[in-house]
Computed example of a mutant assay.
Amino acid sequence: MKHKILLVIFSGINLCAYSQKVIKDQAIIYQEERMVYKQWDKNKFTPVFKWYNPGSYAAYAATWLLHPDYKNGEDLRPLRPGGEQTQRLALAAAMQVTSDYYKKEADTLRNTALTEFMNYSGTVSALDPLYNLYYKKELAPLDNIVANAFLNVTPDVVLYMADSGAYSWYLTQMNSLKERYDNARVVDLDRGQRILLYHRIMLEYRKYAANWKYKLSMAKVMLTYQQKMKNKIENTAAYFSNPTKTDDQIMNDILKNRKNFNP
């Protein structure tokens, strides 16, 4: 029985030893508020001396009489209006605004530089939308002049144009345009002037291309005419070179084949 009573007593002592009690000291709470930003109220410097409570003098004297400069001094909160931390935060905000301004200014300069580069540099001229949509297609024959010279043209016309010197003229004019076209694509130039160069080259190319087509068509007509004249001469020589035919027979042959004399 005694052992049971002692066990109960020791169990109660053990529970009391591990129990916790919430301590709410108003003076500590006010001090914590003064250490940050919440308040620096002169009426909240506790403990406070109360004349009707002599027991409060000892706590008041031990706290504030030993630190009169703290209680009666200026507001020491770091986040007070005008405090050190408040000033640092304001300065950081001002520096952030300045940094954003300079960043925006730098971005503006960068975008302007890129725009000017895209506008003037021949390195990226091939990316021009107007060039890709129109002038590249119109001036594509200049990239292969020889292959586009005699498209759908018979060999006899090709030989005639080469012998007559017309093909040499064509190569000279087209190579001159191609050289100007290549320079216009790579030289550093204002975009508007580059487009005007493309347009002038395109107009000159169309003029020379039309002239070349006309020469090809005239060469074909000329060769056809020469062939007909050759056939006439050969037929006439055949008529008059046969001594076994009489004059009447020769006249009849001429009348039968009179269509051969028509051009």
Score class of each variant (00 low, 15 high):
residue 2 K to S: 13
residue 3 H to K: 13
residue 4 K to N: 08
residue 7 L to W: 12
residue 10 F to R: 07
residue 20 Q to L: 08
residue 21 K to C: 02
residue 22 V to E: 15
residue 24 K to E: 15
residue 24 K to T: 11
residue 25 D to C: 09
residue 28 I to K: 14
residue 28 I to N: 14
residue 33 E to H: 10
residue 33 E to P: 04
residue 34 R to I: 13
residue 38 K to D: 12
residue 41 D to Q: 15
residue 41 D to W: 13
residue 47 P to D: 08
residue 49 F to H: 04
residue 53 N to S: 07
residue 55 G to M: 06
residue 57 Y to E: 03
residue 58 A to Y: 06
residue 59 A to L: 02
residue 61 A to I: 13
residue 61 A to R: 15
residue 62 A to D: 14
residue 64 W to N: 06
residue 69 D to M: 11
residue 76 L to W: 03
residue 79 L to I: 00
residue 90 A to E: 15
residue 90 A to F: 07
residue 90 A to N: 12
residue 92 A to N: 13
residue 93 A to W: 13
residue 101 Y to F: 04
residue 111 N to Q: 11
residue 111 N to Y: 06
residue 113 A to P: 01
residue 114 L to T: 07
residue 116 E to L: 06
residue 116 E to K: 05
residue 118 M to T: 09
residue 118 M to I: 04
residue 122 G to Q: 06
residue 122 G to W: 05
residue 124 V to Q: 10
residue 126 A to E: 08
residue 128 D to I: 02
residue 128 D to F: 00
residue 129 P to G: 09
residue 134 Y to D: 10
residue 135 Y to A: 15
residue 136 K to H: 05
residue 138 E to F: 06
residue 139 L to R: 04
residue 140 A to I: 08
residue 140 A to V: 02
residue 142 L to K: 05
residue 146 V to D: 03
residue 148 N to C: 00
residue 151 L to R: 09
residue 155 P to A: 10
residue 158 V to Q: 15
residue 160 Y to I: 06
residue 161 M to I: 05
residue 161 M to F: 04
residue 169 W to G: 02
residue 172 T to Y: 01
residue 175 N to F: 00
residue 176 S to M: 06
residue 177 L to T: 12
residue 178 K to V: 02
residue 178 K to R: 07
residue 179 E to Q: 13
residue 180 R to G: 14
residue 181 Y to N: 15
residue 191 R to H: 07
residue 194 R to D: 10
residue 197 L to T: 07
residue 198 Y to F: 13
residue 202 M to A: 08
residue 214 Y to M: 07
residue 215 K to N: 05
residue 223 L to G: 01
residue 226 Q to F: 01
residue 229 M to D: 00
residue 232 K to V: 03
residue 236 T to F: 05
residue 241 S to V: 07
residue 248 D to K: 14
residue 249 Q to D: 06
residue 251 M to E: 04
residue 252 N to E: 12
residue 255 L to C: 01
residue 256 K to I: 01
residue 259 K to G: 08
residue 260 N to D: 11
residue 261 F to R: 12
residue 263 P to A: 03
